[in-house]
Amino acid sequence: MSAESNTSNFALSEELSAYFDGELDAAAEAAMEAELEANPSLAEQLGDLSFMREIVAGDLELQAERVPEARFEQIWDSFERSLERESRLQEAAEAPPNLWERLLEWARPLRVPLAVVGTAAVVALVFAKSIQAPEPDQGPDAVASNTPEDAASDQPAADEASTPESEAPSLSTPSKAPQMAVAPNPDTKAEPEMFPQPEPGEAEIRHISFGGRTGTISQVEGTRGTTTVIWVTEDVPAQSERSL
């Protein structure tokens, strides 16, 4: 067989395959049909091709028939789950903002008013604290202490002169010298603004002794309440002692 004959047979086989697959145009197809009628060997090749297709297609269909119905359902369920998951992810990505996000969004332009309100609250707290704290400089209920007039006119008690143990400086120089002698510690000077108006109330006496004198414990009823009073008499030399 010559090379030219082999080339012609190969080209004819290719054209037959194209005819079998329906890929030839009308003229080539008519020419191939004429060739098939004239060439029984070529017609036999076409029959072989048909037979091979039937075998392959039939095998695939047979395999498909062997797959159980349940398997198809599983595959379909898997498809559905995947679709649902994708759908949920898509919905979540497109979900509207929640309530807090919307409130924050609303409040964002009002940051300045919110800051003002917060500052006002802090100022109110500081103001309340300052009101609650005592004002040592301006206590309206402050008790009185020695005024200059008092200091100048301070005299011992009525019977002071008759007591030999009384302080000599206070008797001889009643102006300022006694005050310095009696109160050497500057911390002990009276500060009228330190104490507010005293409140009535009964003291609890744990122990008491009247050394060399008489004494009694009583409660004085005032208009504002009861005050504990310890009465002491110096004139009576008798001794009494009482412990509570």
Partner: peptide
């Protein structure tokens, strides 16, 4: 000593 005592009192209360 004229009187010697131990006692308790509230703040700003007065004892005479």
């Amino acid at each position: 000593s004229l009187v010697n005592m131990n006692f308790s009192m509230r703040s700003n209360q007065i004892v005479l």
